[in-house]
Amino acid sequence: MLIHKIDQEISLRMLNIDDAEEFFNLTINSKPYLKEWLGWLDYVECIEDTAQNITARLKAFAENGGYPRSFAIIYKDHIAGTIGFNDINKTNKIGTIGYWLGENFQGKGIMSKAFKSLIDYGFKDLALNKIEVSVAVGNKKSRALPERFGFVVEGEIRQAEWLYDHYVDHVIYGLLSNEWKKLCN
Rank of each mutant, 00 (worst) to 15 (best):
L128R: 00
G109Y: 12
L128Q: 02
I131G: 01
G102N: 03
T91P: 00
N129V: 05
L118T: 00
K90H: 07
F115Q: 02
G102Y: 06
K116R: 13
K90T: 03
I97S: 04
G122T: 00
K90N: 09
N129C: 10
S117C: 14
I131S: 00
N129P: 06
N92I: 00
G98Q: 07
L118N: 05
Y99G: 05
S112A: 15
L126M: 15
N104F: 06
I110W: 10
L118K: 06
D120N: 14
W100D: 08
I119T: 01
G102F: 04
L101Y: 00
Q106F: 08
E103D: 12
Q106C: 04
L126R: 01
G109K: 11
F115V: 02
N129Y: 13
Y99L: 12
I94K: 04
I97D: 11
K130H: 01
K130F: 04
T91L: 13
L101P: 02
I119Q: 11
S112F: 15
Q106S: 03
L101K: 01
K113L: 15
K90I: 00
I119A: 10
W100M: 04
F123Q: 11
N104V: 03
K108C: 06
K108N: 05
N129Q: 12
I110S: 09
E103I: 01
I97G: 06
G122C: 13
D125Y: 07
G122H: 10
K124Y: 09
K90W: 05
E103K: 08
N104Y: 02
F123V: 10
F115K: 03
K116T: 01
G109V: 13
K130C: 12
K93C: 12
I94S: 00
A127T: 08
S112T: 12
K116Q: 10
N104W: 01
W100G: 02
G122L: 15
A127H: 11
G107H: 07
N104S: 08
I119G: 06
A127Q: 12
K108M: 15
Y99R: 04
F123C: 09
M111D: 08
A114V: 06
N129H: 15
G107K: 07
F105I: 03
Y99V: 08
D125C: 10
E103M: 09
G98F: 09
I110M: 10
Y121P: 08
Y121H: 14
K130R: 15
F105R: 03
W100K: 02
L128N: 01
K93G: 02
K116L: 14
T96F: 01
I97Q: 08
K93W: 07
K90L: 09
G107L: 13
A114S: 10
N104A: 07
Y99E: 07
K113P: 05
W100F: 11
K116A: 13
Y121K: 11
G122W: 13
E103R: 07
L126P: 09
G102E: 09
L101R: 00
K130W: 08
G102A: 01
G109W: 13
